[in-house]
Design a protein around this nucleic acid. Structure first.
Lengths: 187, 187
DNA sequence: ACCTGAACACCGTTCAAGT
DNA sequence: ACCTGAACACCGTTCAAGT
């Protein structure tokens, strides 16, 4: 057991933020979970804004790694594309949590500027990957891949949000399936 | 100018909740906007949960009226369907606000039970209307209309959320257009 | 380097009192 | 009927100070 407060704080903050958002992130509860005092968090992160920025950056970095892994292990782009919704499903499986990007998009007005920036990067990472894979799989023309990538990202996030509002993973699966039937996602 | 504190509170709370969510709703700021003191709000609403419940109920009631109006003035179902995304666009036009349902779906874990119930009714109102109109317009078979209705609702909400995260209405329009190109929405 | 006590600011809520 | 000042209990945030 290697104690590492900074990493522990980051991991706990990520979990909290995916369930309660930026506004629901609080240092006392966070500290208790990590086993230190609330004030100690300020040793690692000068402010709540800095913590949230670090969490949001780590979040897209982790997602970028997952996406690359998905593409590699799937072998071909179309199979990777089919499995993309699994990533958002996993958050719901994790006690009905949701994508940090989605939660923080709702909280846009109350987000410090640096946090907004990292949140946008998460969207960029996702849409760039989708665009690349859509193009490689020849699902749409290279010219259309960026637009379709954004549509898929937005729609999948919306499905996750709606499923969360009923704590119903089966609804998420049904929505993704409907996207496939309608032609938004490849079958 | 008919003074009506209860209605003023409800209207102000709706605006605040569409920008900052349930957690961002606070009685002191709300009271200031209405021109009364925080304690006075308790004369009309016994608790924050009661206020939020009333706001969420009023929200779906208003939306139900807008949807009926849209169907009536459009003349035929397919035209009404094409104009459905305008409703979510209007929130963005209103200082980058968003659908109360979407925001509160993100806040699911922190919502009092009666508020959750009203939030779900908003989704029901939307998907029922969409289902009815999709079926009438023969866009999909009656058997598929409920599933497609949910998919459209989730996707449009997702588009609004993503556009809000960049304060970019043009992105919203592009996403809706992509949904049409992909076949999720009728052209 | 790492952590904390204690103060500060704020929020939902209550209630006795005012008009 | 409608509104308010003042207070309460609580909690997130901050910083000067400890080891």
């Amino acid at each position: 057991m290697t104690a590492n407060s900074r990493e522990d704080i980051l991991a706990a903050a990520k979990r909290v933020a995916q369930a309660h958002g930026y506004s629901g992130l609080n240092f006392r509860d966070l500290a208790e979970e990590v086993g230190i005092k609330a004030a100690s968090i300020y040793y690692y992160f000068p402010s709540k804004a800095d913590l949230a920025e670090a969490v949001a950056r780590r979040y897209w970095e982790d997602t970028a790694a997952v996406l690359e892994g998905l593409l590699n292990e799937s072998g071909d782009p179309i199979r990777a594309l089919r499995r993309y919704p699994e990533i958002f499903r996993r958050a719901l499986e994790n006690d009905n949590r949701m994508c940090l990007h989605s939660f923080m998009s709702a909280e846009y007005d109350d987000l410090p500027e640096p946090v907004k920036k990292e949140v946008q990067t998460f969207a960029d990472v996702n849409t760039s990957w989708l665009s690349k894979v859509l193009s490689a799989a020849k699902v749409v023309s290279p010219k259309q891949s960026q637009r379709r990538a954004r549509a898929i990202f937005a729609a999948v996030a919306g499905a996750q949000l709606m499923a969360r509002s009923r704590a119903d993973i089966a609804l998420y699966d049904a929505l993704i399936d409907s996207y496939r039937v309608a032609g938004l996602l490849p079958t």
